[in-house]
Amino acid sequence: MKVLIVCVSVSHGNTRRVADAMGAVLGARVVEPEEVTAAEIGEYDLVGFGSGIFSMAFHPRLREFVRGLPEGRGGRAFVFATSGFPVVMGPMKRLPGRKGFELVDTFSARGFDTFAPLKLVGGIRKGRPDAADLAAARAFAMALG
């Protein structure tokens, strides 16, 4: 099975660490949206889309990338996120389906978060994702394979 993981990880590297853990299990190529074309996406059997959460939403670069994919693509997809708070997957869960993907599952992990007011107190979820979070990401990936 050929797997691609498209992720945006900009603040603390939380999402990239989770993507790399999943990618190691799946033998996946892990890229940012600008490193892959819509045509290349069609070469993969399974595609993961993930980012950190910013103002309660997935990163705009990831959302715009998925919106820009051609419709009717087909194939399987999963969505994942990291955040200091619980994640609302709703809108991002629907985007791949609008492009013809079958959404097979979602995953989220806590991550170190220094969003605006949290920065004043040194952030929350320091040290996250931790070893247990990364083990959960690997277990999630194994279930996808």
Score class of each variant (00 low, 15 high):
T37D: 05
P96T: 08
M56E: 14
I124E: 07
F107A: 04
G84V: 04
A81C: 04
F78M: 06
F107I: 06
A38I: 03
F58P: 00
V87L: 05
A81F: 11
V87S: 03
G48C: 07
E102C: 08
V10E: 04
V88D: 08
R128D: 01
V31Y: 13
A136Y: 14
A136H: 15
T82Y: 03
V6I: 14
E64W: 04
L120I: 05
A39N: 06
L144K: 11
R17Q: 10
F58D: 01
E32C: 13
F101G: 10
G42K: 14
G50A: 08
V31I: 13
L118R: 14
T114C: 02
G42P: 00
A77S: 13
G74I: 03
H12T: 12
H59T: 03
S83M: 10
D45G: 15
A19R: 12
R125T: 02
C7Y: 15
V36S: 09
K126P: 00
R63E: 01
R128F: 06
V87K: 08
G145R: 13
K2L: 03
A28N: 11
M22F: 01
G122P: 02
E64C: 00
G13P: 04
K2I: 01
K99Q: 12
A57S: 09
L144Q: 05
M142P: 07
F115D: 00
P33K: 12
A24W: 13
P96S: 10
D20Y: 05
R63M: 01
L4V: 08
I124F: 04
G111C: 03
E64N: 08
R128Q: 08
G50W: 10
V104Y: 01
R98A: 12
R128E: 10
L120R: 14
A21D: 03
E102F: 07
R110P: 00
A136T: 14
L134S: 08
D105K: 11
S108N: 09
K2V: 00
L95A: 15
I53N: 11
A132F: 06
G23D: 10
V47T: 11
R76N: 02
V47S: 02
E64M: 06
L120T: 11
M56D: 14
A19T: 13
G127E: 05
G145T: 07
V31C: 13
F112P: 02
R110V: 03
V3F: 05
Y44W: 14
A131W: 04
M22V: 02
V8W: 15
D45V: 12
A39F: 01
A132M: 04
G74F: 04
T82N: 09
E71R: 11
L134D: 06
E40W: 11
H12K: 11
V18C: 00
F78S: 06
E102M: 09
H59F: 06
S11R: 15
M56F: 15
D20T: 09
T106S: 03
A131F: 02
R73A: 06
V104M: 04
D133C: 14
L69V: 02
G122C: 08
G27W: 11
A38R: 05
R29L: 13
G123N: 07
L46Y: 12
G52V: 09
P86L: 03
L26Y: 07
T114G: 00
G74A: 11
